[in-house]
Design a protein around this nucleic acid. Structure first.
Lengths: 191, 191
DNA sequence: GTCTATATTCAGATAGAC
DNA sequence: GTCTATCTGAATATAGAC
């Protein structure tokens, strides 16, 4: 019907762009490289997406949905165990998609759709910290837990743990201490 | 004596480059812009520094020395208070030099000199966590504390706390919970 | 030590044919 | 929808005069 039938799809473009991001970093996600990966020329992509920024936003949306689903998948009581499982799932996601993960925290392209996607992704964490810390401290506790996890995986991905020692054991220690600290503050508040 | 006396200094170049980094981000640190900021042309800088990467390494070294000095300045017992003061100092440094701070965790240019500078910068933190957590867990506790702080300030600088609430109060809560968690694990280990 | 001039490379994005 | 050809711009770094 068309003189030039579609040779690719929007989904394939996003998938290929994310693969390029992981392989070559953000600078490797050029329109030409993405086009080549899906079998078209670079300029042809502009018939489907507005510009490079829109492509990167699409990668972010896909990644946030994936992260949220992984966290949701390990939800459920008891809260203490759920917190541990979510921490493990979060760390696993970051290790499997390090460059994509890093992009989630670069604010250049944030918009309202991104805000909504972020809120959905962290909802399971908020549910867990509400149970761990009490409703009054749920948000603060969620911020502690995500800050710790984000800091930890960022440092791991940057190769910042360079003083030796057992990093796996340290992660277990740090996660336990964080959860215990949250629980301890709840107990203190009840007195 | 010279036909063309020096119009700038190495120190001025690093200072100007760091100011450009803070104003325009890493991409703003071009050789031409740095040259203009110190009153010479871009290519003239190559008589003083090997290349752009060396310039960025020099910024990192300066920043790490500054951060280490700030942490050292608030050291001293009691450990619990020192940990709090260091957290505040760390956060203040990141807020005053956000782009420079972010660059400290981008591993592209790390070398042995950078490792040594990093080790010096975190030495005060290790001293504090040794007192807080005991010698056996000092490194793991330092990793917890730095991961939490790095994660927290990274999220703040990225504008990632977008669910409302009192971020200052949440920081106080999170810092207290982290310190208490470290202390609680020490008590648990002693039993 | 600084200059001008330039080699080199490569990116995003558009125009218009098919 | 895809193509080729091109515009536009900017960056790092070098060469060689002064």
């Amino acid at each position: 019907m068309c003189p030039a039938p579609a040779r690719t799809t929007d989904a394939a473009i996003v998938t290929a762009a994310r693969a390029l991001l992981e392989r070559d970093g953000p600078a490797g996600v050029t329109m030409q490289a993405v086009g080549a990966a899906v079998g078209v020329r670079g300029p042809s992509l502009y018939k489907r997406i507005a510009d490079r920024a829109a492509l990167l936003r699409a990668i972010e949306a896909e990644a946030l949905a994936e992260l949220g689903a992984r966290l949701e998948a390990v939800a459920g009581p008891p809260a203490r165990l759920a917190a541990r499982r979510m921490a493990v799932a979060y760390r696993a996601f970051a290790r499997e998609s390090p460059k994509t993960y890093a992009m989630l925290f670069s604010p250049e392209r944030w918009d309202e759709a991104g805000d909504a996607a972020r809120a959905r992704a962290v909802a399971p964490v908020l549910a867990v910290t509400a149970a761990l810390a009490g409703q009054a401290d749920a948000l603060a506790a969620a911020r502690l837990l995500t800050a710790f996890l984000h800091g930890w995986v960022s440092m791991e991905l940057a190769g910042a743990f360079r003083l030796g020692g057992d990093v796996e054991a340290a992660f277990a220690y740090a996660l336990d201490a964080t959860i215990e600290g949250i629980e301890a503050r709840r107990a203190a508040a009840r007195i």
